[in-house]
């Protein structure tokens, strides 16, 4: 994938993360800085986190992927909000 126009490249990667059945993620941000691509957001499992790197790497092997996506927490809430 050509990275000459970073805006288009980032948009293409965002679209790929949405449309690739492995990821189907609309909630991940793609930031392109030179030869580096940063992924930010939260997904539901470790496997999905790994798939993000996979999809981006396949499409843009020339880029270094920094997967900063977290796996969403699932603990019981410790407090409640009072609504009067």
């Amino acid at each position: 994938m050509s990275t000459k126009t970073p805006q288009y490249a980032a948009a293409r990667l965002t679209q790929a993360l949405a449309s690739d059945p492995r990821t189907a993620e609309l909630g991940v941000r793609v930031q392109l800085r030179g030869e580096h691509v940063y992924l930010v957001g939260e997904v539901a499992s470790e496997e999905r986190r790994r798939h993000l790197t996979e999809v981006v790497h396949e499409l843009a092997p020339e880029l270094t992927v920094h997967n900063e996506v977290g796996v969403v927490e699932c603990r019981e809430p410790s407090t409640a909000e009072e609504l009067d």
Binding site: G27, G41, E42, A44, V72, E73, C74, R75, E76, P77, T79, A80, E81, E82, L83, D84
Partner: peptide, 22 residues
């Protein structure tokens, strides 16, 4: 009217609890 966005990446837990009084 109070509005709450409970998308899990926002609340960062299994669920949120709101105690509606009155």
């Amino acid at each position: 009217v109070r509005v709450r966005n409970v998308a899990q990446p926002v609340i960062r837990c299994a669920y949120k609890v709101y105690n509606l009084h009155g």
